[in-house]
Amino acid sequence: MWYFTVRQNDLTNEQYQLLQKKAKLTEVEIFNEPYDNLCLFEVERDHYRQFVDTLDLEGLSYEVVNERPTRQQLLEGMR
């Protein structure tokens, strides 16, 4: 599995729905200000390229890892 992290504020509703359809699982990690909420998309290995292509075509910034990041790791990445 691959885990893609995208800032929720960077996504339109249409982009979110498009990515949600292509992902196996979608979660939203909610943080208090001054941090942004993050969307975490779980994608099967076979769909990695398609998902990256979609993110790139939509012009979205993302981070990708092959192990699900913990909430603490997500928070540390924003500091």
Rank of each mutant, 00 (worst) to 15 (best):
R49P: 05
R71C: 08
L25A: 11
Y62D: 05
G59V: 01
L19C: 06
S61C: 11
E67P: 00
K21F: 00
L60V: 06
Q50N: 15
Y3Q: 04
K22T: 13
L18E: 10
R45Q: 10
L18N: 10
E67G: 03
E63W: 01
E27G: 07
D36T: 04
R71M: 09
Q73W: 03
D53M: 05
D56Q: 15
F31P: 01
R7F: 12
D53L: 02
L40N: 08
Q8A: 13
W2G: 02
E63V: 02
T12M: 05
Q15A: 13
L25I: 12
F51T: 08
V65C: 12
K22H: 14
L38P: 00
G77P: 05
R45C: 03
L55H: 03
P69Q: 06
Y3E: 07
D36L: 03
K24T: 12
W2A: 06
V6L: 07
L57Y: 08
C39A: 14
E33R: 11
Q72R: 15
A23G: 06
E14L: 14
E27Q: 14
F51W: 07
R71W: 05
S61W: 02
N9M: 03
N37E: 10
H47V: 10
E58D: 05
V65K: 09
E14N: 13
Y48Q: 15
E27S: 13
R79S: 14
K24L: 11
L55K: 13
D10H: 04
D46M: 07
L40S: 07
Q15N: 12
S61Y: 08
E67Q: 11
C39E: 05
K21N: 15
V6T: 02
L40P: 07
V43H: 05
L74S: 05
E76M: 11
L57M: 15
L38S: 01
N13P: 01
R68P: 00
L60M: 12
Q50H: 13
L75K: 11
G77E: 08
T70N: 02
F51I: 10
E63L: 06
D46I: 11
F4Q: 02
R79A: 14
E33T: 09
E67L: 07
D10K: 08
Q20V: 01
V28Y: 03
Y3D: 06
L60Y: 04
L25H: 14
R71F: 08
Q15P: 02
E76Y: 08
L25D: 09
T12E: 09
Y48A: 10
D53K: 12
A23Y: 00
V28P: 05
E58K: 03
K22I: 04
G59L: 04
T26Q: 14
D46S: 14
V64D: 07
L74K: 07
G77Q: 08
D46F: 04
E42N: 09
R7N: 12
D56F: 03
F41L: 04
V52Y: 04
D46N: 14
Y3H: 13
T26R: 12
Q50W: 04
F31A: 01
F41G: 03
L60S: 09
N32L: 02
Y48G: 04
Y16R: 10
E44D: 15
N37D: 15
L19P: 01
R71A: 13
E42Q: 10
R68L: 06
Q17V: 02
D46E: 15
N37T: 07
E14C: 10
V64K: 08
Y48S: 08
E58M: 13
Q72I: 10
F31L: 06
F51L: 09
E63P: 00
L60W: 03
C39P: 00
S61P: 01
